[in-house]
């Protein structure tokens, strides 16, 4: 019988993804004042992973969260999934771009803020182009981005505090 060889990193990814998925699902039960606004607390796991283990691990965690989370919630390949996937992809691209900057690295707060904003913008563009290309939707965009900035800051500060603790 063959066993699939797993590395320590695989275990780490699985553990972190499981944590992110748990937060993701818990959050989906929260009522939302506006469609699309969620605190994005799973972002905390992403950013912490990024700061400790790097982009590759963080990307795995994010993608596992989106796919497995949607499977568990029964939204896989649904419009909700498309939005969540685009948002995740946008935030990963943004984080990747931020990592490319030479010199002093951004801290968790900067990463978190960029990730949250890219996530929201990505979701919004997907929602606008794929589902409701109505100009009225554009009015929501500034509100959603304000929420993204707020939640991005809060989760960033949480991660920063967490990291300080670990050290």
């Amino acid at each position: 019988m063959n066993t699939l060889a797993t590395t320590a990193e695989d275990h780490r990814i699985a553990l972190l993804a499981a944590l992110a998925i748990t937060i993701h699902i818990a959050e989906s039960a929260l009522p939302s004042p506006l469609p699309g606004i969620k605190p994005g607390l799973a972002n905390i796991v992403t950013i912490a992973t990024l700061c400790i283990y790097g982009l590759r691990t963080a990307a795995w965690v994010v993608m596992l969260r989106v796919v497995v989370g949607s499977l568990l919630l029964g939204t896989f390949l649904s419009p909700t999934f498309a939005l969540s996937f685009t948002g995740a992809l946008a935030s990963l691209i943004m984080l990747g771009a931020a990592r490319l900057i030479p010199g002093q690295r951004l801290g968790p707060v900067g990463y978190s803020l960029l990730a949250a904003m890219a996530h929201m913008a990505g979701q919004f563009i997907a929602a606008y182009w794929l589902f409701i290309p109505h100009p009225a939707l554009l009015h929501l965009f500034p509100i959603l981005m304000t929420a993204a900035v707020l939640f991005g800051l809060v989760s960033g500060i949480i991660v920063a505090a967490m990291l300080k603790h670990i050290q």
């Binding site: 900057i101 002093q104 913008a121 606008y128 965009f141």
Partner: peptide, 25 residues
């Protein structure tokens, strides 16, 4: 420090571009 500032500006521009995609042509 100076160079990083420049890159950050580029980054913010990228963010604006993403936001800008959903604006009317």
């Amino acid at each position: 420090m100076k160079r990083r500032g420049k890159h950050l500006v580029l980054l913010i521009l990228a963010a604006l571009l993403i936001a800008g995609c959903s604006r009317p042509q």
